[in-house]
Design a protein around this nucleic acid. Structure first.
Length: 842
DNA sequence: CGTACTAGTCTTTTT
DNA sequence: GACTAGTACG
């Protein structure tokens, strides 16, 4: 009767296989974390392994924290000496100790994506790279890809020979590394790569860690990239006491370098490896699992497994298709409220998941209207916000002046009258004398090119120096932040500004101070450098708390989480799977999307609801999307509503559907003609589709009414004149539902070819604009009419999506917009722009 | 040097 | 639609 008896057979096998390489294929919800924590306990209790010799690596701080907690509970004494961390923080810890052996200062700073971007922009300017042809983003992503494969800039240069484009990237890569080194900075990828480099060039360091980490466990192994694999291999040394746990079906981070081969080929790398599959699911109902299994079985490159559970049956999966994304959002909020009233669920049991962050806005708006408490996960990282980055840049500059980027960020924030030209001059001076930007600032009076601006620099330098003195006097991080705010007047400036989100920004700064206090409380020997470092590696998912709130987030963020009730919104071809994946020549792209769908479905414990919209605004353009192929890949008997023949125009086009599928690649089962034939009539309600004939009938009816009302020909120059014309247009993909569309003028050549493709495919994304304005049917929610009026006046009651209800105090006409002053019942008085605030009259 | 307006880009996902 | 970099002007 011990703690291992509660494990199932497969789990027990994984737990007790302690020596040699072990690949544990753990399906979703199969008790993976449980297995790992028990394995750690087993190593310590049954195999007399010193906790000191155990290492568990995860990807997110949150996962690490959870594992830490569970290990502590299970193991008790001595558990604190187990390394339970993320890849990135492990590397930081190692590099802080040894990176001087690679010629870096041990007090290096860590650059986030934004920092890298600013560096790259500079580089493109100085190397005269035409960023129209080759975007900074593209260069950075090429560099990142290279780094994830452990390709240094020197190696990259060798591979770039004969390729003009690659040579440019190569030069930028070299320069980028150079600048980072000068700034004593590492980017995220460097953390891993430099650690591998350290281990390669300093075998004695590696040996020390190998001696320490005799038992290594890696969670979410399917997300590892090549460098991470190299790192693990190095650490595992010759003993290979390496246990990797993962699920190839949940590999969804290819875009950031995850190499799915790491898991698929594990047995080739370690021929002596043992493989254990955890296929019993403790999370979801059989219906949900069947759906997940069916969808994922459409992927080719995978390790075969079938999840099963003892929870027979369960509720049918729900599917709803709506006319617009607005209605979809409305349904989501309503459904949650309704089920809550019935006592089926509480807010905290639900999550709404979507493919892209952009989709969150509508859902948020609707939840606010319905008064549903929610927590948005993701979007912009807290530490990436402008005001936070500004304050952190001050702290960095105080900590050490070596980070040019940080100094340049704050030199004129708040405004000190120091302009771009002055900054360039200082930079030139710094470069010429091979010194840091801040050091150049200190001797500003010697820079003759800046003339009278030098006087403005001095107070800045003095201020930083004064703050440094405070730091040396032992100021805590939070005190230092307050000091920065005070002396710079940062918050005062925000308070005075009429920026709409000034209050939010101040709130964020308060939040930062709280985090600093919390940091001080949890660290006996706190240091500014350490605080900055912790902060650099925090991702938003790490902050998910468990209040009773509906969580809304991307599918990516949801990995590793579970909820009783899951809503997958935006189940549309073109949204999910995204059009990028659909159009890509490489079928692997679509498989990655499908894995994402698998992840989404398997988050649900009890009920799963899939929703889609026929019409949705994407990047300012209206898209018309078919139901996601992933919905169609679910066995139809598992759904309470089937995706009926939706608007697959080619189903009725003269070419027929089959020949028109994308490049001949197959769709999942049940997709295509059959879906029409199997849809018995009578259900063309909000979830159903409509036959071509009835479309035309409806059009003819409308056309008769229109002509009778306004006289013929009013719009005929653009819209065509009759049913025959309509039918023709409809078959071309230019007519949709009640509306007639004109395909938007392609921008440039790329757009042109894309559109041709759209024509050919017919049932995917159709970028279109309504010709009959009123037909678009989209409520923007804004009270501004097109020409700049508002439908409310002074004294009226209005509603704001964030601040709630309030009374309009003042209305001022500005050239382009109205400036509205509203006294909100709960949020005080705010001045905002009408077009932006989207106030709704009550 | 700072502001106000314009044009272009963006969206996949993030440690 | 929203944001940002770039430009023209005060």
């Amino acid at each position: 009767m011990n703690k291992y008896d509660s494990l199932n057979e497969a789990q027990r096998e994984a737990v007790t296989t302690t020596e040699g390489p072990l690949l544990c294929l753990a399906g979703a919800g199969s008790g993976k974390t449980r297995m790992i924590t028990h394995r750690i306990a087993y190593l310590i209790e049954e195999c007399q392994v010193d906790p000191w010799n155990i290492m568990a690596i995860t990807f997110t701080n949150k996962a690490a924290g959870e594992m830490r907690e569970r290990v502590d509970q299970l193991v008790g004494m001595g558990s604190e000496s187990i390394w339970v961390t993320t890849f990135h923080s492990s590397c930081v810890r190692i590099l802080r100790r040894y990176i001087d052996r690679l010629g870096y200062d041990n007090r290096f700073t860590i650059y986030d994506t934004d920092d890298s971007m600013s560096v790259m922009k500079d580089i493109c300017k100085s190397l005269q790279i035409d960023t129209k042809m080759l975007k900074e983003r593209a260069i950075l992503s090429a560099i990142s890809t290279a780094k994830n494969e452990n390709i240094s800039c020197t190696e990259y240069a060798m591979g770039a020979q004969g390729d003009f484009q690659k040579q440019k990237i190569s030069r930028a890569y070299t320069e980028y590394q150079d600048r980072l080194r000068k700034n004593n900075a590492l980017d995220f990828d460097d953390l891993l790569m430099k650690t591998v480099e350290l281990f390669t060039t300093c075998p004695e360091v590696l040996q020390a860690y190998q001696r320490r980490f005799q038992y290594i466990m890696v969670d979410e192994y399917q997300d590892t990239n090549t460098v991470q694999f190299m790192l693990i291999k190095q650490l595992a040394g010759s003993k290979h006491n390496l246990c990797v746990v993962g699920d190839d079906d949940q590999s969804i981070y290819k875009f950031r370098g995850a190499n799915i081969r790491n898991i698929l080929d594990f047995e080739q790398y370690f021929p002596e490896a043992k493989v254990v599959k955890l296929e019993r699911n403790y999370r979801s109902t059989q219906n949900i699992l069947n759906a997940a299994n069916a969808v994922i079985s459409n992927n080719r490159g995978r390790k075969e497994k079938q999840l099963w559970t003892e929870q027979e049956g369960g509720a049918l999966l729900h599917f709803r298709q709506f006319d617009t994304a607005y209605e979809e959002a409305e349904f989501l909020a309503d459904d949650i409220c309704r089920k809550r009233r019935k006592g089926i669920l509480d807010y905290g049991d639900c999550a709404v998941l979507y493919r892209t962050n952009a989709q969150s806005r509508l859902i948020e708006e609707r939840l606010v209207v319905e008064g549903v408490p929610y927590l948005l996960v993701g979007g912009q990282n807290f530490y990436a916000r402008r005001e936070i980055k500004d304050i952190l840049a001050y702290l960095k500059t105080i900590d050490n002046g070596q980070d040019d980027l940080a100094v340049r960020r704050i030199i004129n924030v708040p405004k000190r009258g120091i302009g771009a030209t002055t900054i360039v001059r200082i930079q030139e001076y710094a470069a010429a004398h091979d010194m840091s930007f801040f050091d150049a600032l200190c001797e500003a009076d010697r820079i003759d090119t800046i003339g009278r601006s030098a006087a403005k620099l001095k107070p800045f330098v003095l201020m930083i120096q004064a703050l440094r003195t405070k730091l040396r006097e032992g100021f805590h991080v939070d005190e230092l932040i307050r000091e920065v705010i005070d002396t710079t007047g940062y918050v005062r400036e925000l308070e005075a500004s009429d920026e709409e989100d000034a209050r939010d920004r101040i709130g964020n700064i308060d939040e930062l101070i709280s985090k600093a206090v919390a940091y001080e409380d949890t660290h006996n020997e706190s240091s500014l450098s350490e605080f900055l470092e912790e902060v650099a590696l925090v991702a938003e998912v790490d902050n998910v708390n468990d209040d009773n709130r509906v969580l809304i987030m991307t599918l990516h963020s949801a990995k590793g989480l579970e909820f009783d009730h899951v809503y997958l919104a935006g189940m549309e071809d073109g949204v999910f799977p995204g059009s990028m994946a659909i159009y890509d020549d490489n079928p692997a792209e679509l498989e990655e999307e499908r894995r994402l769908a698998y992840v989404g479905i398997t988050r649900a414990k009890k009920e799963l609801t899939l929703t889609s919209a026929k019409q949705r605004m994407v990047r300012g353009e209206t898209q018309y999307n078919d139901v996601s192929r992933f919905v169609r890949e679910i066995p139809q008997e598992l759904l309470d509503n089937r995706p009926l023949g939706t608007r697959s125009l080619n189903d009725y086009g003269s070419d027929g559907y089959e020949e028109n599928s994308f490049g001949g690649r197959g769709f999942g089962s049940g997709f295509g003609k059959n879906s029409f034939e199997s849809s018995s009539g009578g259900s063309s309600d909000s979830t159903g589709g409509m036959s071509a004939a009835s479309f035309v009938e409806r059009y003819e009816q409308q056309e008769r009414e229109r002509q009778g009302r306004t006289g013929a020909g009013e719009q005929s120059g653009r819209s065509g004149t009759g049913a025959a014309d309509y039918r023709r247009r409809w078959q071309q993909g230019r007519v949709y539902g009640d509306n007639v569309f004109d395909l938007k003028k392609p921008k440039g050549n790329a757009g042109d070819s894309r559109l041709k493709e759209v024509y050919g495919i017919g049932n995917a994304v159709k970028t279109a604009r309504p010709l009959f304005g009123a037909g678009s049917g989209i409520q923007t929610g804004a009270s501004m009419s097109g020409t700049g009026g508002v439908d409310y006046g002074v004294g009226d009651r209005v509603r704001h999506m964030k601040y709630g209800d309030g009374t309009v105090l003042k209305l001022e006409k500005e050239p382009k917009d109205y400036k509205v002053t509203v006294s909100f019942d709960g949020a005080g008085t705010k001045i905002m722009y009408a077009g932006f605030a989207k106030l709704k009259k009550l």
